[in-house]
């Protein structure tokens, strides 16, 4: 079974974030990065499937040179090889753009299963995997907690609300977006780290993938990003209990507009 896992490099989730001067995103200077949380669980799911059924795990990441560290980490944990989508045309893509690049690269590669995290810790769109699936013309399932192989293809467990789950039978190849926390992440071993140095990381750019600029053009933009405003107010209402109740109702109705 050939599995491709998409790994996004995101700012560490305990980063102290400062807004950039244009007020459109966060400052990227002084940031440190890590593998997007749900993507790491996707990688682990892929490695466990490979251990059970054999095959190959390919770690794919898109971004500048620094994202190689994410691919290397995946190789050290047991992925067989890496694909790095690197091109200045890939800077500042929205979910559609990233989905387009992933679809082009994975189509060329071919696979039985394409895994992404449920959503990224930075933008949180939760769209990239789904868009890639649509562009590839493949079935997809989101918020996946378990994956089993059977003769017909896949049987996957989806998370619903309030502790309910859904089991879905679907054909392969398919795209699954993986929920965080569904398995136990492994440590890279020293052997794994040494072996990773010899594994291949293939670099692909937009031209090689045959992606034109128009298909990467953003369909969405950030107008302004700002810290949540605190506007806590405290008012004291005085008078008899009846007066207070009447005034309170009036304020809730006309000022706070909660009814």
């Amino acid at each position: 079974m050939k599995i491709i896992v998409c790994l996004k490099q995101v700012p560490k989730n305990d980063s102290v974030l400062r807004i950039n001067e244009q007020g459109t995103w966060i400052q990227d200077r002084d940031l440190t990065y890590e593998i997007n949380e749900s993507d790491a669980y996707g990688l682990e799911a892929a490695l466990q499937l490979k251990e059970k059924h054999g095959g190959e795990v390919i770690a794919l990441s898109l971004g500048p040179a620094r994202v190689q560290s994410v691919i290397k980490e995946a190789l050290a944990r047991g992925a067989d090889r890496g694909i790095h989508l690197e091109d200045t045309a890939f800077d500042n893509l929205d979910a559609y753009g990233i989905g387009t690049a992933i679809a082009a690269a994975t189509k060329a590669e071919g696979f039985d299963l394409l895994l992404t995290g449920l959503q990224s810790d930075d933008y949180g769109f939760a769209q990239t995997g789904v868009i890639a699936a649509e562009l590839l013309g493949l079935p997809h399932t989101t918020i996946v907690m378990d994956v089993e192989l059977n003769d017909a293809g896949l049987r996957v467990k989806r998370e619903l609300e309030n502790g309910f789950f859904q089991w879905v039978n679907m054909p392969a190849p398919a795209v699954l977006t993986i929920q965080s926390g569904i398995n136990t992440l492994r440590y890279a071993t020293l052997k794994g780290i040494m072996a990773a140095k010899k594994k291949e990381i293939k670099k692909l750019d937009a031209a090689t993938l045959g992606i034109d600029a128009a298909s990467l053009a953003p369909r969405m933009e950030f107008r302004r990003i700002y810290l949540p405003q605190k506007n806590k107010q405290t008012q004291f209402i005085e008078g008899s209990a009846g007066d207070i109740a009447a005034k309170l109702i009036d304020k809730l109705k006309n000022e706070a507009r909660v009814f």
Partner: peptide
């Protein structure tokens, strides 16, 4: 464990 995945830094608690 499983965290309901709100993007952490848009929730404000980490800023």
């Amino acid at each position: 464990g499983i965290r309901q995945s709100m993007p952490v830094f848009l929730s404000g608690s980490r800023l």
